[in-house]
């Protein structure tokens, strides 16, 4: 971690030329493997983009034809006009933002309680929390709907948002952050405690600043989850003006006819924002998921 006093960067020992050479060879090897396997991982996205530029007929040619014949930009214009694309996108961003906001406030707080405060019954409660993740959604879906319907929240975003803030899914992020907090050196928090700092202050002034990247991670995952969620919006929203992109994507799929080109174009525009978001967040994000505090 950046603030870690034991930073070992300076300890880089002088290395012999031979070792450096073998290091260079190994690096080249790493690049080779990463690039080759990386091509396989690039495939779905490249496929998606290329397919979005093909005619419906070209899409299914067997054996596959990678490049579109004549580039079909109109897949994009048609896709955007077939549904209120930007309204749905706005709605999706709004829901995702609300979910992120709550989760990054609540999850670290709870994770701190589960990792840094040694209170009676902590482990028991922690197991209970984990076990709430183990019941499949199929059997709790209807009671949850009933509950939100009783408090008159259906046809609003709140069932979706409240579920992300207070539902069982939160446990995933709490568990992740707990693993992270457990790695923060004992001495850091303990010395503050001796100085008389309250837990809330240690949390706010030591643990939170140290885990900004971790929070970023949790925020990003929450965002991605909300972005792709289909079930929640479909079940709860009865007003098409409130729909999200994932429901919008279904509009290109009709029972006897699928507008493949448009579907792929819409999927590309659906994916692009999160790819870009991911690209810019990932630097911090990488540091974030770490769970060992020492460097």
């Amino acid at each position: 971690m950046n603030a870690s006093p034991q930073s070992a960067d300076a300890a880089a020992a002088p290395r012999s030329a031979a070792r450096r050479r073998s290091g260079a060879a190994r690096k080249a090897m790493s690049h080779l493997v990463l690039t080759l396997v990386g091509l396989l991982f690039l495939m779905p996205f490249v496929w998606l983009v290329l397919t979005s530029l093909k005619t419906d007929d070209e899409i299914f040619v067997v054996p596959v034809q990678w490049l579109p014949g004549a580039i079909q930009w109109e897949n994009y214009t048609k896709a955007i006009h077939a549904i209120p694309y930007f309204r749905y996108m706005g709605n999706t961003i709004w829901i995702a933002a609300l979910c992120v906001l709550g989760v990054v406030v609540i999850a670290p707080l709870v994770a701190y309680g589960f990792s840094k405060i040694d209170f009676k019954g902590r482990n028991g409660l922690f197991y209970i929390m984990l076990s709430t993740l183990m019941l499949p959604f199929q059997v709790t879906m209807i009671p949850i709907y009933v509950m939100f319907n009783k408090i008159d929240l259906t046809n609003s975003y709140w069932p979706i948002v409240l579920s992300s803030w207070f539902g069982t899914g939160l446990a995933y992020y709490i568990f992740l952050l707990r693993q992270f907090f457990l790695g923060i050196p004992h001495e850091l928090t303990e010395s503050a405690k001796i100085d008389g700092a309250s837990e809330l202050r240690i949390y706010a002034q030591i643990v939170l600043p140290l885990s900004k990247p971790a929070l970023l991670t949790v925020g990003l995952f929450t965002f991605l989850g909300a972005w792709g969620d289909f079930q929640g919006p479909l079940i709860y929203l009865n007003d098409p003006d409130k729909w999200t992109l994932s429901i919008g994507l279904k509009q290109y799929i009709q029972e006897n006819k699928v507008a493949w080109g448009q579907l792929m174009a819409a999927s590309t525009i659906f994916t692009l924002p999160i790819v870009i978001l991911y690209f810019f967040v990932q630097k911090k994000f990488i540091e974030g998921i770490t769970i060992t505090g020492l460097k």
Binding site: I142, V146, Q231, N238, P240
Partner: peptide, 18 residues
């Protein structure tokens, strides 16, 4: 009219009192 209401949604809403 409200479209895109697949059977899953229909069932959930009807069962859920809506």
């Amino acid at each position: 009219t409200l479209s895109s209401q697949d059977p899953q949604k229909q069932l959930t809403a009807i069962s859920g009192g809506n």
